[in-house]
Write a protein that binds this DNA or RNA. Sequence first.
RNA 1: GGAGCCGUCGUUCAGCGGUCUAGGACACUGGCCUGUCACGCCAGAGAUCGGGGGUUCGAAUCCCCUCGGCUCCGCCA
Length: 591
Amino acid sequence: MMRTHSCGDLRKEHVGREVALCGWCHVRRDHGGLIFLDLRDRSGRVQVVFNPQEEKEAFSVAQEIKSEYVLRVQGIVSARPEGTENPDLPTGEIEVHASRLEILNVAKTPPFQIGDTQGVDDVVRLKYRYLDLRSERMQRNLSVRHRLVTAAREYLNSQGFWEVETPILLKSTPEGARDFLVPARLYPGKFYALPQSPQLMKQTLMISGVERYYQIARCLRDEDPRADRQVEHTQIDIEMSFITEEDIYAVVEGLFAHTFGACGIDISTPFPRLTYEEAMERFGTDKPDLRFGMELREVSSIVKGTEFRPIAQTLDYGGIVKGLCVPQSDDIGRKEIDRLTAFAARFGAGGLIHLVVEDGSLSGPLAKFFTPEQQESLKSAFKASSGDMLLLIAGDSATVNESLARLRVHLAERLELIPAGQWKFAWVTDFPLFSWNATGKCVEAMHHPFTSPREEDLPLLDTDPLKVKGRLYDVVLNGQEVASGSIRIHRREIQEKVFKMIQLSPEEAERRFGFLLEAFEYGAPPHGGIAPGVDRLVAAIVGEENIREVIAFPKTATGADPLTGAPSEVEGDQLAELGIALRPSETEDRK
RNA sequence: GGAGCCGUCGUUCAGCGGUCUAGGACACUGGCCUGUCACGCCAGAGAUCGGGGGUUCGAAUCCCCUCGGCUCCGCCA
């Protein structure tokens, strides 16, 4: 037997026990006549003592040990001498007096100290990911992820869901994100696509009579990564038949309660619900952070009539004036205002009006443009008290909301208004089905084109499509979208109608989604689903800013993998076999 | 596609026109040390400053290009 115990599990009750342990040398402290060595495995660390008077042989082997050597230790668990206990270590009350030490493998000096990657370049960490992952932090992240996914399976299984795998090689349907393409060797000139999500397959499974499906699914999108976004990410993909929104809400709330519970976090259900409209109104975003206040207020009607040109003009062309109230803003000086203005400008805000609330009135360079009545109304609109600061932005509603929403979060972080250890979930519902696309010429699907319009809005499809609400719902957690889903269309004529709305010709629709349209004609049940994002959920639970920290082998911000060297060039005959020739410029660029 | 910031011993940080023969910390090597736990003490080795070009009498330091990284905008149905 290689080992009898795990390092981190040893406690006082093991004292006197003969144990065998395996692990890595975390650190060695050589006192000349006495050597301490912290042995580390997945469970934690334990101190091993080598005393030449007890075991000469083991002691002399211990003299050779360096960081990250792989070791097997036999010895007796002993209570530490009075006064030498280490309260910072779970195993700090005991130590192992080694009788035998085997070197299972030697190790080169690691490029960084295990567990101390603070400030180490990400490329170095990713290149030596296997060392990075040995750290307590990363092992905890992996284990929390495992617990969450396991709990998700437990819960969904208990609710009658079947886990079904769907293909990794699919047909390309360039609808939203850019597809990753895979050349099909047997069909020169043709390509598979990697799934952006199992959307079409899970709907097909509903038509197949599966009724309750889930999958821990990898989703791949060939778009630029971000801190909360990688080219590949993992979803708990869920779809159900014969249900309404309420069934989804119940399953998801149960799922989150169970999975967070498995990670040691109690959350309260049901989640509060906000409509999209209300979220935009109060927070300027469809993923509000509900852990703090500073809600937005529209004050267009209050400031109407002011002489201040930017506001007057904005209101004339149909824009709005909206703002928020920063509590106890004493430490926001002139410089800070400039910085906040620049921050808001990044999201299109033309300017930032600041007004300091004093006992009787408002002060600030622009206060004079508001009548005493207006000042009073502003104060009461924000329920502002002396010492607060009002920040107002004028412009079109999209810009105003975006910049104020960002400003709200930015300020809350700066002023440390966000309480730690809170899990503020909410449903955001009643999204519009369509929004203007980038060109502004036609509408596009807000979520995806398979989302069902509300029954009562069907007549609006022809008259006022932007007013049509979709049967859409998101889960937001602490200001992040952590799940998104919808009730789907299950009737061919409505699906065709929606395709038409987004300027997808019948021929194009047939080519891309013909199989689904046809399947709808063979008795498609009403169905819908949702897909919580594993990476973001785990990151939130363990308090990581970047989802890279909760993925075993992530990519850099440019989609590269420093460990394996992907992406890489391929052999000429591999390309020849696929019938692919690179354009000269492409190959030149890479030399 | 665009913007900002960054790139100096293994790691990290300082140096920002000459004093740099590039400095500190950790790691590393050698020595000493029987109660440490980021052990301590002494000594030592280790970088031509991401790469290329330019300005200058002189460049780690200024300029241009390039590569790589991080963050953000675009993008992400």
